[in-house]
Amino acid sequence: MSEPWLVVAVVGVATIAFKAAGPVVLGGRELPPRLGGVIELLAPAVLAALVVTQLVGGERELVFDERLAGIAAAAVALVARAPLLVVIVVAALTTAVARGLELGAL
């Protein structure tokens, strides 16, 4: 098996197992109520980590670049209660424009 196919196979099987863990292995069973308070907080904790890693995450380093301008613009759009697509487009456009300005300055 070539290297890419090995990665595709192992990651695919692992991911399918992760996603099936709850619905197939524990499916139908309720979690103990004590755990409910914990699981309730999983979404905000993981989503916050996803924001951070996608925003300033690099290869074992924090990278502060034009994405910050994009997320700031997105935050303004969120406060203004803009629809999700607008928030995303504003973030991408702002970042692209910031990169363009930087390139122009060079």
């Binding site: 907080l41 989503l47 924001v51 994009g70 997320i71 935050a75 973030a91 692209a96």
Partner: peptide
Amino acid sequence: GLDAAFPALFLALLVSQVRTRPALAAA
């Protein structure tokens, strides 16, 4: 700027999830 679209997406989803004090603390 596509790399900035995803933190923006997750931020929007996060905002919709942070409705309580413990949720904000966890975030």
